[in-house]
Structure formats: C-alpha cells, structure tokens
Design a protein around this nucleic acid. Structure first.
Length: 817
RNA sequence: GCCGAAGUGGCGGAAUUGGCAGACGCGCUGGACUCAAAAUCCAGUGCCCUUCGGGGCGUGUGGGUUCGAUUCCCACCUUCGGCACCA
C-alpha cells in the first residue's frame, strides 16, 4: 500500500487552494445579502519573524471555525495581517540588529511563508500591514476625525516613562509599576502628550457590554474593574480665611460627619496658593519636590507621609474646621485630587491619622451596635448593614439612606452634588519612538497646533538611519522633514515628531479588512456594515483590557460619527490560554520558543495542526510537550491506511445502513453529532479529534463492515478542519472532490442510540452488575431484570428492596436495607 | 487584601442536564510479524487485597444535600490569573 507522504500531499493541495483562491471572498459590494456571512478573526500578530506554537494554537481555533462555517454554507471572511508598526515591531528589528524598514518586510514575508506552509485557510487577497502608507494614511485620517470631534487633545500630564524603551506608556501598559513589554521599572514624569478622550465613553463602554453576545465573563470583569465606575458625590469644602472652595470626590458621603482632616495631592494646583507667604511654605514646597522625585513604585509602597499646610477647611455638614495636609497617598489623577479624610472608616486615612496623631471619629456602626459602643479611635471595617451615628439629624439612618439624605441636604445648600468617579484615565497615545504612525499635526508659532488637511495625507515616516530610542522622538533628527509650512497661514512650522501607540493601529484594522483596497476612504460603510460585527474574535487573554477596550472605543466613536452602523466590533470573543514551555510563557523574548517549522518539515503541517488543539481545552493554559506529538503522526498514518483500504471498495451512497444499521454505522452518526456539537456549540476543539480517533479505531477493527466505507468517509470529512491536506487527498481517492466546500455531514437522530445497551445495575448506589439489554423495556421490566442478576441476588441476600430508581436506557439503582 | 479560574492515573486530558470515573493520546508491560531493527498489529495498564469468583478504596482536604456527587451547598488548603493608596 502507498505510504502516507505529507510533504507531497500538502504542497499539492496548497497549490490547488492558492490557484482557486479557495478561501477568498469577493471584494465587490454587489450581492451582499445580510444573511449567511461569518467573519472569523484572530488578533493580528506583530512580525516577530518567527511563528511559535502559541500562534499555531491560536490560529487553529479560527481555522476550525472557518472551515466548519464554510461547510455549513456561510460566506466566510477570514483575513490576516501584521501589526507591523510600533514598539513591538521596532524592538524586533533592534533585536535583529537591523533597520525596521528592512527587517519588518522580511519578517512579514517569513511569517507569511510559515502560515502558508501550515495551510491556513486565509483570504490572502485582503492582507494588510499597519506600517504600509496605504494603511496608516487612514490611521492618520481617523486621528484627524477624532481631533475634530474633540476626542484628541494635547496636554502636559503626569506620565509613566519607561527608561528602557525610552518612551511614555499608557496606563494600561504599566503592570505593577513595570513596563508591560520589557519589565523595566516605570518612572514618573510630567510631559506634553497627546491623549484620546476615552473617559468620555466610560459609561458606554460599561453599559453597552449588554450588546455583546458572548464574551468570557473574566474579560468583562477585567474591563469593568479597569473602568472602575463608582457612584458618590462631589462635596465642596471652603478654605477658612480664603475665598476658595475645594471639591472632593467621595463614595461615602454618609461618613461626612467623621471627616477629621483634609488632604491634597502634591500636584494639586491649589497647594501653592494655600501656603504662599505662610510659615509653612518652605516645608510644603520641599515635600512637593521630594514626592515629585519618587518613582511610581516608591510612591505606592512607602509608608504614608505628608505635611500640614497651616490651613483649615470648613466641613459643610457641621462647620467643623479641619486641618489641610498635603500627601502623595492622594492621587491627582483620580477624583478631584483632594479628599476628605475619615480615619474611622478608611484604612488609608486611619494609617495617616495614626502617624500624625490626628483625631478619629466613628460615625457609622454595624446595625445593632450601641451608638457609642466604644470603637473609640479605631478603624471599623465596612459592613453591609451599617447605621449612621454622631451625625446630627441623620443619626439613626442606615448608611445607604444617609448617603442620599446628606447629599440632597447639601445640594440644597449648594455645596454638594451626586457624582460618578472612574478609575479609567484618558488614553495616552503619543510615543517618543521612531517606528510608528506619524501624528498628522504641525506646530505653528502663529497658529499653534494645526491639524493637517486630509489631502496632505499620508504624512510619510521620514527615513532616519539612527532610529534607536533616545528619550525624544528620533523623528526630530530629520530636520528637513520637521520643517514645513503651516497649512493655515503658510508660515514656517514644525511637524509633530511623536508617533502613535501601536494600539491605535490595531483599533480599526478589523474594519479595513472588509474593504482593504479602498483608496478613497478608510472603508465603505455598506461593506463594513455587512461584515461587522465580527462573529468570532479569537485572541490571547493578555489583551483583555488594552486592545479590546481601545477597539470598542474606536467603534463607538465611529458609530457616533455615522461611519459604521454598529456599536460593538466583536460579538463573540474567545480568549485562549497561553502556551508554556519549561515553566514560562512561550515567547521570543523569553527565548523558549518551539518553532513549528521544524515539526512541519519532519512530519507535516497536518500533524502540527492536530496536536495543538489536542493538547487540551483551548481556553486554558497548556504546556508544550514533545512526547505526545508522535501520537498525531501515528493517527494520521492509521487514518491513511484504513481509508485507502476502503477506497478500493464500492462508493457509499451515504445510506449504507439499510436496517438494521451496524454498530459501526451508528458510531459514525454519533461521531458526527458529537463533533458538530463540540465545534459548533461548545467551542471544544480537543474532543472532536478524540471522537474521530475512536471512529477510526472502530473502523480499523471492522474493515469488512458493510458501513465501513461510510465510516471512512465520515472520518475524513470530520477531520477536515483540522487536517485539511490529508483529508482532501483521501477524499479525492474516495472518488470525490472539493471537500473544503462540501456540506458538513448530518447525523441521523434515529441512529444516535445504540440498539442494544448495557444496563448498569446499582445496589445502594454502588455498581454491582451490567446487563446487556436489547429493545425497549418498561421500567418495571428493567427492574425485574436487575433483580434477576445473580450478582445482585448475592447482594440482596434476602433483604427487602425498598425502592428502585430507574434512568431509562442507562441505570437501575436498587435501594435495600 | 479583594475578585476570578483551576486542582481527576506515571503524564496531557475526558466525563455536556446529578446517573458506568479515567474516553482519546502519551508512556509503560507482554505478545505477533522480522535474520534484526523500524513501522505496524494484538492484549494489558487507577491503587490495594484476592481462594481469580470477586472484594475494598479512589476525582485537593473536611463536612453536608441526595437512592446516587468529579458535577450542587458550606468551610478549608494549594496553584495560577486579574485588580490593588481609585477616596
């Protein structure tokens, strides 16, 4: 018999698919019925230059879904591109010691070759690279649109600076005070930067989660935490002796009577005014300077410290004068940068009060406690059923009642209002790095900040040889490029030299795929509305916040501008676990990458394609193991052998099971049902492979069964999304054509149950016997059979059967005693 | 600290609605084929006891609900992930 030769088979079919444009969908806007489309998308990779097993695991998900849906008659869009602009791509170039303009295209070509070799069913006619001027001109165009809407602004802001990558980072890119990419400790600086006003969409990013059809709960939770909406109030405190009101944000207005001091962030603009010309001036200024030099990590971990300003504010609820301190445990970026401190009910305030011997005044107690049940001067943890005490006319109210009542009362007097606080900050988008989308702005001495007119796009990235990061944008070195003409007044002007964060590039690429060759617009709304939302988006959980939040934000803005007709880009999201190897996440920067190419060369793409999903549930992390791989190779050889054996026999008409259907015939139908349910409903990608293996094992044991050929055809058909090359070749040898668009098999419900089954007989819940049952018996008959079993008789030993539980076609449990 | 996920043979894992725990694969053991090896095939493989009929134990730990629990409830342990001075 002819040997299974993956190399020959795989190149043969890859050439066929390429010639036929088998996985492309037409570009035209004609014939776009709203029904029957599927947009399957995996997050686009950055061109590291090398595919690793994590990619294969990720893309196999989309692969299986795409084949499965295509064979169910859907028109499937499944594009692929490269996130080739920005820091990751630039760092890849630095690693390889070349210039990104040379390294990036080379890496893209290499990865695309690897993908092609794996036989992925991708519409390569729609590929895009974010560093391509034809792409980034539209990134710039979108930036200008956002600018017009007031959603982009430039501001001096406290920033997180990565000393290693020599650039600012977005808040989302800082993890535990360290750079998300390189792990260096992040420094605090204050710089003029560009920001997207994503906070304007905080409520909608939360509330419109309802529109999402299927997203993992943990991702939604992470986004909710990140946005961090909390309801509370803004309360004004009048500075004693100055005509100034300072607002504070609090979620606990019920504790207003317990405020014993007041704290400003060191960066608070009023600090200067409060101490100017007072004896406290020197000390406060020194403190502000000292804290400014602290790193983010230091600021968060050191013991709380601060200085008294000599000033007092008046608590609007009781006219109490409370001292104003400055401390960096209060953050300028959250709330109003000032807080009322209630040490009796806030751990942080309590720690500060202890250190500086400030008063502690309890004003809420757990229900049932005596009003003054001496928690004197101690911190009381928050409980669900608190009652307000020591709070004038509000004493005795429950905490929730008091919250509302106190704010309403103050509102009437003009010193408070209900307010909402968010943890989410605006998205800092500018980067002081070379390899990114230039920001289409010029700075004119006369006109200030001037956005470029659309007809001057794209602003091409200047060719700069020394592109290495040096703390200010390398674009500044391209003097001929920087000097330009102001589009507004025609005078001398300088171009903006910062580039955009990579995540800007990837916040709209899924729209461009639908209309990738449009030279007149970023995309055509009719086409984008046809394909979007993405039916199944697939990617790593590490993007749960960053990319997924930004893309949702972009989509909402574009929806508001009337450019797209939907509000959420990704209806269903699947986040797959990471691939580990030798105890660490497999990644090029960790140096523990297992290269799929090696395995593909030795054993073929199909074996690699089978193994990664087979490794385990895709939503969980998996450890790469060399040892199991051989099993896939063996399975493919076995499949080949048993199917080729059947190919010589009579073609099956699909109804080979004239009654009574053989056990093998029924097994084939059960396998169809199982695989279909696993892929289509459960999104379980490992168990379908096991099911087909079972079918093939059964077939190998019964090659002469009259349904053997049908079983062979079924196995080939079902394994096609995983191993399309060998499946296609076997399909051809079975006498058919074009399996990739052949309808997915249907299970006959009548054949899903075994004709005979094993009745499990339990006595007091323990399995004591299994009896072969043929045909349909009533429950009473089943119980009788169970009782007749000699093994059961031995257990009964004359005892009385008190009760019998029957599960039809499965089990009888006799309760004796 | 708060929130979430997970814990099943030597290993990866399966068991979908509370109903046969360990599918499938790896590994291992024995056998067939072979001059030999590879490949392939067949049989076995949770642990303990056994008079070989079978019996006992077993899904992180301890309780509970139930005729019956890997599955539901309570408490705890361990691992991983997210958040963490957010007022």
């Amino acid at each position: 018999m002819e040997q299974y030769d993956p190399r020959a088979i795989e190149s043969k079919w890859q050439a066929v698919w390429d010639d036929e444009r088998a996985f492309s969908v037409p570009d035209s806007t004609e014939d776009l019925a709203s029904e029957g489309k599927t947009y399957v998308l995996e997050m686009l990779p950055y061109p590291s230059g090398q595919l690793h097993m994590g990619h294969v695991r990720n893309y196999m998900l989309g692969e299986v879904v795409a084949h499965f849906r295509r064979r169910h008659g859907y028109r499937v869009l499944r594009p692929m591109g490269f996130d080739s602009f920005g820091l990751p791509a630039e760092n890849a170039a630095i690693r390889e010691g070349g210039h990104p303009r040379d390294v990036t295209p080379r890496n893209i070509a290499g990865m695309r070759r690897q993908m092609t070799r794996l036989g992925w069913a991708i519409d390569w006619d729609r590929t895009l690279s974010t560093h391509d001027p034809e792409y980034y001109r539209w990134t710039q165009w979108l930036f200008l649109k956002f600018y017009e809407q007031g959603l982009v602004y430039r501001k001096e802001v406290p920033v997180k600076w990565c000393p290693n990558d020599q650039t600012v980072l977005a808040n989302e890119q800082v993890i535990d005070g360290h750079c998300e990419r390189c792990g260096a400790e992040v420094e605090a600086k204050s710089l003029e930067q560009w920001l997207f006003r994503i906070t304007a969409y905080a409520d909608r990013l939360l509330d419109e989660m309802d529109l999402l059809e299927s997203w993992p709960e943990r991702v939604l939770t992470m986004q909710r935490n990140w946005i961090g909406r909390s309801q509370g109030a803004e309360v004004l405190f009048r500075v004693d002796g100055l005509d100034v009101d300072i607002p504070v944000f609090t979620t606990r207005p019920d504790t207003l009577f317990g405020a014993t001091f007041f704290v400003l962030a060191p960066e608070h603009p009023l600090v200067e005014r409060l101490v100017d010309g007072t004896p406290h001036e020197r000390e406060v200024r020194a403190y502000v300077r000292r804290t400014g030099a602290r790193s983010a990590v230091e600021r968060e971990t050191k013991e709380k410290d601060g200085v008294f300003t000599g000033r007092f504010v008046v608590n609007p609820v009781n006219e109490a004068r409370i001292p104003v301190w400055v401390s960096d445990y209060v953050l300028m970026e959250y709330g109003t940068g000032a807080i009322m401190a209630v040490p009796a009910h806030d751990e942080r305030d309590f720690a500060f009060a202890e250190r500086y011997s400030l008063a502690v005044k309890p004003v809420v107690v757990p229900a049932g406690d005596d009003a003054d049940a001496e928690h004197d001067g101690a911190f009381v943890a928050h409980s669900d059923d608190e009652v307000v005490v020591n709070s004038a006319q509000f004493s005795g109210l429950s905490a929730p009642e008091a919250k509302r009542a106190i704010v309403e009362w103050l509102e009437g007097r003009g010193s408070a209002r209900f307010a909402t606080g968010y943890r989410l900050r605006d998205w800092l988008l500018s980067r002081q790095r070379y390899w990114g989308t230039p920001i289409p702005i010029v700075h004119c001495e006369r006109c200030g900040i001037v956005p470029l007119p659309e007809d001057q796009l794209p602003v091409l990235l200047p060719d700069v040889d020394d592109y290495l990061p040096k703390g200010r944008s390398p674009l500044a070195a391209a003097e001929h490029w920087v000097r330009t003409e102001c589009p507004s007044c025609g005078g001398e002007a300088r171009r903006e030299t910062d580039t955009m964060d990579t995540f800007v590039d990837s916040s709209w690429y899924f729209l461009r795929y639908t209309d990738p060759n449009n030279r007149a617009a970023a995309f055509d709304r009719r086409i984008v509305d046809y394909w979007l939302p993405v039916n199944q988006y697939i990617g790593g959980v590490e993007h749960a916040i960053l990319h997924l939040l930004y893309s949702r934000f972009f989509t909402k803005v574009l929806n508001d501008m009337g450019m797209v007709g939907f509000r959420e880009p990704f209806a269903r999201l699947f986040t797959q676990g990471m691939v580990y190897y030798r105890g660490a996440k497999m990644s090029k920067s960790k140096g523990n990458v297992v290269d799929p190419t090696e395995y593909v060369e030795r054993h073929g793409a199909d074996a690699v394609r089978l193994y990664l999903p087979f490794l385990g549930p895709v939503d969980q992390d998996a450890e790469w193991q060399d040892t199991g791989f051989d099993g896939m190779v063996r399975f493919l050889r076995k499949l080949w052998r048993v199917v080729i054996d059947q190919a010589d026999r009579e073609p099956s008409d699909g109804a080979a099971g004239q009654a009574p259907a053989s056990a093998l015939h029924r097994k084939a139908h059960r396998t169809i049902a199982k695989v279909t349910d696993d892929i289509g409903r459960r999104f379980a990608m490992n168990t379908p492979i096991a099911s087909v293996m079972e079918l093939v094992n059964d077939l190998a044991r019964a090659p002469d069964d009259r349904s053997a050929r049908f079983a062979a055809e079924t196995a080939v058909s079902l394994i096609q999304p995983y191993a399309p090359h060998v499946a296609e070749e076997l399909w051809q040898r079975l006498g058919y054509e074009r399996l990739w668009e052949h309808p997915w098999p249907k299970a006959d419900p009548a054949l899903l149950v075994e004709e005979r089954f094993e009745l499990v007989v339990q006595v007091n819940g323990k399995v004591r016997d299994r009896i072969e049952i043929t045909g349909d018996l009533t429950e009473d008959e089943l119980v009788d059979r169970a009782k007749q079993s000699p093994r059961v008789q031995a257990q009964l030993d004359g005892k009385h059967v008190r009760r019998a539980v029957v599960v039809p076609r499965k089990l009888v449990n006799l309760v004796i005693g």
